[in-house]
Amino acid sequence: MTDTMIYTNNLTKSFGENLAVDRLSLSIPAGEVFGLLGPNGAGKTTTIRMLAALIAPTGGEARVAGFQIGQQDREVRKAVGILTENPGMYNQLSAERNLSFFAKLYEVADIPGQVERYLRMLGLWDRRHEAVGTFSKGMRQKLAIARALLHEPRVLYLDEPTSGLDPEASRIVRDFIAELRHEGRTIIICTHNLNEADRLCDRVAVFRSELLALDTPTNLRRQIFGRRVVFHLAEVTPALLDAVRAYGFVQQAEVLEDKLVVTLDDPEAQNPLLVTALVGAGAQVRFVGELRRSLEDVYLHLVNPQKEAN
């Protein structure tokens, strides 16, 4: 059984009248990459800050790496690394000095060794003596990720890790996150980049003050939109549509852009039957594939269901 690294039970945070996080209950196992998705002001950063023992919850409870938030905050801070939304650096100081300062605060035993390790890993070693103020945004972001990892935290919070980065820098950061996943760290990513969340996260939570949905991206797609199979045929005729609709397991069949789109619950078992039926009815089947809905579709459906329905 996998250890639970992050556990929250009805975690709540309000600022006066404003309810930022409403009874959030999560259980995230060790080694999982977990995406926290939601619109601006949804409470993602507030949640991260609570789980990093930076701000105190106003209700509920949370444990991170086995330590109770609100009672063992120093232990929590030692166990987690955080990349904040605005990852500030001391601009006048060199990259090396920035990291060695934070390494000291994190009580790292081998400061020069750890600083060198992460500067090399993120390709900043050659520029370690340069003032951070001269760095590009991508380099600063990489340095901030290095800072979050200096003390080898078991849990890593990444708030908008690729925000404002060019595609190349984004790719480097994403690849690095993927490497961290292989090291077995538990990672929570807050992001507006849904494509990134889809690629990196084992599970995602769609969140707007309260939890709207939580599952793997694939399962969320299936739960909301079902599984849709697209048949590329030489020609779609009403007779072919009827041949498909004759099967009871077909939930929906329609013609979209000259293709036959069928909603099924178990395409692996049902596709061969449909292909046989179509060929038998005289169709030329050129290609069969699954019509994937993007995580963005899932997100928009959950966050703004009325607009999506319209």
């Binding site: 120093r74 987690v80 904040t84 990852p87 500030g88 650096m89 601009n91 934070f102 605060l105």
Partner: peptide, 17 residues
């Protein structure tokens, strides 16, 4: 200065009292 450079949050996130 810490506020202007957004460095206070990373500092407060460390185990420093």
């Amino acid at each position: 200065g810490e506020k202007n450079t957004h460095t206070l949050e990373p500092v407060l996130a460390t185990p420093i009292t």
